[in-house]
Design a protein around this nucleic acid. Sequence first.
DNA 1: AAAAAACTTTACGTTTACGTAAACTTTATC
DNA 2: GATAAAGTTTACGTAAACGTAAAGTTTTTT
Lengths: 148, 148
Amino acid sequence: MDIKKTYSISELAKEFDVTTRSVRFYEDQGLLHPTRRGQTRIFSSKDRVRLKLILRGKRMGFSLSETKELFDLWDETLSGNEKQLLLMLNTLANKREQLEQQKNDIAQAEMEMDTAEARCREALAELQKKKRQQEKAKKEEPESMEQK
Amino acid sequence: MDIKKTYSISELAKEFDVTTRSVRFYEDQGLLHPTRRGQTRIFSSKDRVRLKLILRGKRMGFSLSETKELFDLWDETLSGNEKQLLLMLNTLANKREQLEQQKNDIAQAEMEMDTAEARCREALAELQKKKRQQEKAKKEEPESMEQK
DNA sequence: AAAAAACTTTACGTTTACGTAAACTTTATC
DNA sequence: GATAAAGTTTACGTAAACGTAAAGTTTTTT
């Protein structure tokens, strides 16, 4: 259970560091389903979880409509007929493949960053060696500028 | 070393399954730098590598301008003054943090998919148990429909 | 109760990453 | 040498994901 039962739009916006505009947009697109007290939106902890999922999805490169599809599919799955369940299992398998691809991409990127960093450090070491040599040269012939 | 020295636009497009429009757009945005024979673009294997990086970046949720910044930064880094080298090391560290975040996101997603899949399978098992019971009932009282 | 703060809808604007079409040139094929 | 194939530029169009502003309502604070 989450700490609280309901949330205002600005509470959620603040907590997840998004604008209220975004939250309203997500509702507009059917990703969140706040109830109303009068005109005012009241978000449940389910909405809160979904907002968290939306944002994680974004960080993982998912579009809002992809995320929405997952939400919808999951909701239908809960209603529980066999076709829906199988469809969900299928979708899950596909997503797993995507995640595998992403893990590969990340691993590759990390390797390349390792070599990039190594090269940087080598180049830096080179530069600093040069510097030290120059300083040494200065100390050994400090009058070299005056002599002309 | 890559197999070939130069590539036409459609060769690259085909190899990486993007449109020529996209490739031209990437050039337009300064991410690729083909030379020309007359009007025609000629891509080097460096361009090919960069195209690969662009696409991987996209899969990882990077925008084109983020990727371009990295490219530019790297090019300047190669020219090798100290400030650039330190800046690059800094940037690399930041990117590593991003990757860590993404790995966390993926791990979370995988866990949730595990539990989702488990629930699906349970629900399926339930449904199939019911089904079997119904069939059993039919066999034991096959005349139940006729008797009325 | 007056002012400030938070919320609402409506609607036009903006950026990113291309799609699509037109009109033209260059290169390859028959 | 005609024609098809591949390439080019120019330019308008589009979907996604909000930003921003206006104009009004509701709630809270003083």
